[in-house]
Simulated scan of single mutants.
Amino acid sequence: MKIAFIYIAEPYQCYHTASVASALAAIPGCDVTEYYSFPETIDHLARIRRALNVPPLPLLPFPRSWKANILKRARRLDQERLVILRENVEELNQYDVVVATEYTAGVLKDMGLNGPKLVLLMHGAGDRYVNDEHLVREFDLTLVPGTKVETYFQDKGLLQNGASRIVGYPKFDVFEAVRRENAVSFSNERPFALYNPHYQRVLTSAPACMDTIIKGFKAQNDYNLVVAPHIKMFHKGFGIRERLLQRQQSPEVLVDTGSNAMLDMTYTSQAALYIGDVSSQVYEFLAIPRPCIFLNPHKLPWRDDPYFLHWTLGDVVDDPADIMPAVARAEERHAFYRPMQEKLFRETFGEPLLGASQRAADAIVSFMNNV
């Protein structure tokens, strides 16, 4: 069975799927090849495989036209992704299975993918509406982390043309392997809070809250601060946004705009406090229940909205002026939220926490043996 894993976005995708590709490659009869779009993917895949102590897999760049290169230079990465997929359909048609972790790959069927079975290895925690989630219908097999996401997809009618399997979250397997590499430390040895804003303009708290948070943490003595936005926040702006943010760094404020630690759970595993808006990384943080604060400067009507379910796991702050008072009481408030954190984490990722990579690989083989 010939299987292609496709990495069509930034290297964060590696941490969701590389361990599954390796588990599949170890199963007799499975021939796995990986394709990448971003050159940085090469180093991340090598890093993961060293940590897992498994051999590298055949790795090929997606051939790129002049049009794709222009779009990349202009940082029109969503359009670039579609161009690359369209230009490589025939290359992928030689496989029995194509595995992706982006909903976007569902467009391959309309582009002429007619030989392989298309498998979605979902990443994220499923609380947020994504405008291309309708493409889940195009996948022949959808691998989800837990019951929460599977139920959501079923209720939305997104699994009507395919099958689903609950496998857990392979990224936890990768983190277990790489976690010894990175320890976050500050010279003052205080614990640190993580500020992890999303990138979508209508949801992100960064424009309204970033300066208030950084100034507030510099003025108190309980926590250090790590500012680690979603990597896609820096798609546009030709690097200006990164440089402006990095100027805010100080001995008690670490600003990260692109290191491995943004991608591999280094910050979410070690932070004492999470501050964010709609990023699914909060669920990675809750592998160990800890205090959370959620920011709502847009004053969205979030209560009873399933897309904001994670906002029930900590205090929600509408006014930036109230952020630092919420930080001061976060530890005390955590006892109220901890039971719900534990419950929702289990529903999101299932149990046991580790072993999802092998479960996903076995699910793909089982599915193919029965079609």
Results as ranks from 00 to 15, higher is better:
A4Y: 01
P11C: 11
P11S: 12
C14M: 09
S22R: 08
G29M: 04
C30I: 10
D31W: 01
I42D: 05
R47G: 12
P58K: 07
L60E: 14
L71Y: 11
R75A: 14
R76V: 14
V83H: 05
V83A: 08
N88T: 07
D96M: 05
E102Y: 11
L118W: 12
L120M: 09
H123W: 07
L135R: 15
L143E: 12
E150N: 13
D155I: 10
K156Y: 15
Q160D: 15
A177N: 01
R180V: 07
V184I: 14
P191M: 02
F192N: 05
A193H: 02
Y195S: 00
P207V: 01
I213E: 07
K215L: 12
L225K: 08
G237F: 10
G237K: 10
F238I: 14
E242K: 05
Q249I: 11
N260V: 11
M262V: 00
L263G: 02
M265C: 05
Q270V: 05
A271V: 04
L273I: 00
I275E: 01
Y283R: 02
E284Y: 02
F285Q: 04
R290T: 06
I293P: 04
I293W: 05
F294C: 02
L300G: 06
P306K: 15
V317F: 03
I323G: 06
R329Q: 12
H334K: 13
Q341A: 11
L344F: 02
R346E: 07
E347Q: 10
G355W: 03
V365C: 08
F367T: 08
N369R: 13
V371N: 07
